[in-house]
Simulated scan of single mutants.
Amino acid sequence: MMKPFLERALEFINVISKESSAFEYGCGTGAGACFLADRGFNVDAIDISPTAIELAKNIAEKRNLKINYNNQDLLEMSRLNKEYDLILDNYCLQSIVTDGDRSKLYSIIKSGLKSSGYYIISTAMYNEGRSYGEDSYYCGDTGIVYDRTSSPEQYNE
């Protein structure tokens, strides 16, 4: 859960007012969007998964939170349709791997982030205290953790 991360990040910025707006892409089932809406942000959120969006809508409704959720792929957009005080990446950037897609993502973010706004990225990071096990290898030069996977043939036995 990203709650402790967001609580700490919001301590450093001062954007929350009745008019503050936030946009979350890769929202999944809406934990980040709910966190922001619960703290007074007007939130728009998207995810590529229609199932995740339906779950997010149900969760927000049960919590009495007004969040504008949409099933959409950020990379199919050319720009955001309004400007936001805060844009949140909820473990999405790590799935956007090509230079071209990342460049497009940053262009889209730039189109919708107020000049006084904040862009918060929450992503997986290496933790030196984590035990990766026998089937994993951490490369200190690249910061990549490699996991051994089973071959597809093993599942056909």
Rank of each mutant, 00 (worst) to 15 (best):
A124H: 08
Q72K: 14
F35E: 10
D147P: 00
I96H: 05
R63I: 10
I59G: 06
A33C: 11
E134L: 05
G133K: 00
E19Q: 14
I67L: 11
L65H: 10
N127D: 15
E7I: 02
I53N: 11
I67R: 09
M2E: 04
E128S: 14
I16A: 11
A9N: 02
Y69F: 15
R130T: 07
V43P: 08
G40P: 09
Q94D: 04
A33D: 11
R39P: 10
E24W: 11
L65K: 11
I67Q: 11
S115T: 08
A56E: 08
M125V: 12
N127Q: 10
N14L: 05
F12T: 09
S151Y: 07
D85L: 10
E153D: 04
S116G: 01
P50G: 13
G40E: 12
S136E: 02
I67G: 12
G28M: 08
N90V: 06
Y91F: 13
Y126G: 03
F12L: 05
Y91W: 03
R8T: 00
P4A: 00
T123P: 01
A124L: 11
D89H: 05
N14K: 12
N71K: 15
T149C: 07
E61A: 15
G100A: 04
L80E: 12
L10S: 06
E7Y: 02
N81R: 08
D47F: 14
Y118M: 00
S122Q: 12
E24I: 14
K104L: 03
L10E: 06
A22F: 07
